[in-house]
Design a binder for these strands. Sequence first.
DNA 1: CTGTTAGCGCGTTCAA
DNA 2: TTGAACGCGCTAACAG
Lengths: 338, 338
Amino acid sequence: MKKPTIVDIAKRASVSVGTASNVMNRRPVVSKALVERVEAAAAELGYNRNTLAASLRSSRTGVIALVVPNIENAFFSEVLQEIENLALDSEKSVMFMTTGEDEARTRRHLQAIISRRVDGLIIVPAFDYQPALAELERYGIPIVVADRISQKNPFPSVSVDHKAAGEMAGRHLLEIGARDVVYFGHSRPDYWILKQRKDGFSAALANQPEQVSVRSFSLSLDVFVGKEQALTALKALDKPPQAIFAASNLASKSVLPALQAKGWSIPGDTRFLAMDDFEALTMMQPGISVISQPSAQIASQAWQKLMHLIDGEEAGENALLQPELIVRGSTPVIAASA
Amino acid sequence: MKKPTIVDIAKRASVSVGTASNVMNRRPVVSKALVERVEAAAAELGYNRNTLAASLRSSRTGVIALVVPNIENAFFSEVLQEIENLALDSEKSVMFMTTGEDEARTRRHLQAIISRRVDGLIIVPAFDYQPALAELERYGIPIVVADRISQKNPFPSVSVDHKAAGEMAGRHLLEIGARDVVYFGHSRPDYWILKQRKDGFSAALANQPEQVSVRSFSLSLDVFVGKEQALTALKALDKPPQAIFAASNLASKSVLPALQAKGWSIPGDTRFLAMDDFEALTMMQPGISVISQPSAQIASQAWQKLMHLIDGEEAGENALLQPELIVRGSTPVIAASA
DNA sequence: CTGTTAGCGCGTTCAA
DNA sequence: TTGAACGCGCTAACAG
């Protein structure tokens, strides 16, 4: 079956292709009568616009690329869902790609983004990404960086105040009365936000009237390895710390199983606070208290910024959203021991 | 900065555009010397192929659409990740869309799929989808249906043997000695696979030497509503059943919290078996036993079928993959009571 | 093996 | 408002 083109529609409606094109693009320059005639003709012929041809001509594809490290992390899948909703509202489509925290893979994706003439990119980068993204700029493809910004991030960005998140965590543990805490994080010097969290956490616990003991451990980004590392760390302790802070999604997934293996219960033996919410934290018994990142807000603000950039406007100030403390059953107040 | 076109490359390399095109498409008809010259020219000018133009001309976009009900469900996100991997290997891009189990939304997505001239579609449908998909066929867009097939599914499909899954569940509960079981499912007559699961479950428990009591409850697809319904159902029981089977991801998310609210422990008060694995089931204490669907296999077989269809070949027999029983701590054998 | 050229379907002119 | 002509960048087909 031959697909009808805009020329066929124009003929059928007895108008020029120019007029038909104006109707398709909802340009308010065509008389109402003609609009109806064209639309009727399109419906009769089962016309379906060839976006490809339109894009080639207008050099706007209506496609947005979303690049995230992976999709297993609930935070990223929430961002994806939200972006997909926003795209549908704007009649855009989203091209989805994962970096796998891998530079070569990302490079291939960025290449595709350029050659497909994607209108814009929202990326949660996984490493020192500036050189790779610079190439996109050469092609005039707007970029918004979400969540993981680096210290000297040159792109419009929407992120969470990770330092505040760390502080929030520290303060909460202080408030429940913990004076002996363990911090599980990761030591990737290229992830500035992890350093931010830790700095915030340390700052909150420093210079307290009562001395607070903080021990820190760095875990692998591989959950299985991380669990073993966490277990080793726990075994080296003579008794459970009063509280544990897992400074990332992955840290939680490593430390919680390690605690189970070690046989220390929450909140009986130790309090537990997590960074970055995900479903398992809500379903566990007791629920795990968490510092949560506002994924939907991040997505929608990133989207807005990108739309502005695509329209040739300014993206505006970089956004730094506030995290939220969600208290569940894992961090009750510690009774003062005699 | 003006983007170089293939004409510029051809000029720079002193070859014809046809030859340059052949090099870009890795067609093995160009002499090695020229290939090198063209590639050098492309590198020097920072050439980036305009896939849009190529697609318009060749009517192949190299874009695959993946349409799933949502992304929160771990099963779908695993499928997405796998598809994305496969796409990268084949230098294709994936357009991602969710139906939200909503027909109007899906229709809009399918419209976009057509007008963007996507090469093929892998869909996990959410309702009686045949009329909507028929339109795609008119446009010659190959379709592979994954996971949720309907009884009379006319499209090439890759699914799980949901009846076998139900049987597997029933048999496992039988084997651990349960004679008094509760089944939590959903009653959506348009979801054939849910009926299949239940039929399989019932079949496994019927005609046993010892009579097995099976009580069934239908839950809403909304988890919060479902939890309340499950709680009401549990409260109506005078004592915990020996075993519970939650026949879907959503059912688990409803029933597990309801059990906590009711105060019945697993596996102390009742055994628990789930259908469809997700992370929280592994992290809970004890881990929840589950009938798992092979998401990666589903994705890769769907991909293969789609590639065949795109190449104009037969998709081959519809695939019906076998589910897998993963025994964790929630279904220990029930000691015979005196 | 390489060169030439028409045209994929649409959007944008510009004169009428 | 209209209509015709051109070109976006590339590939297919064919000629050499």
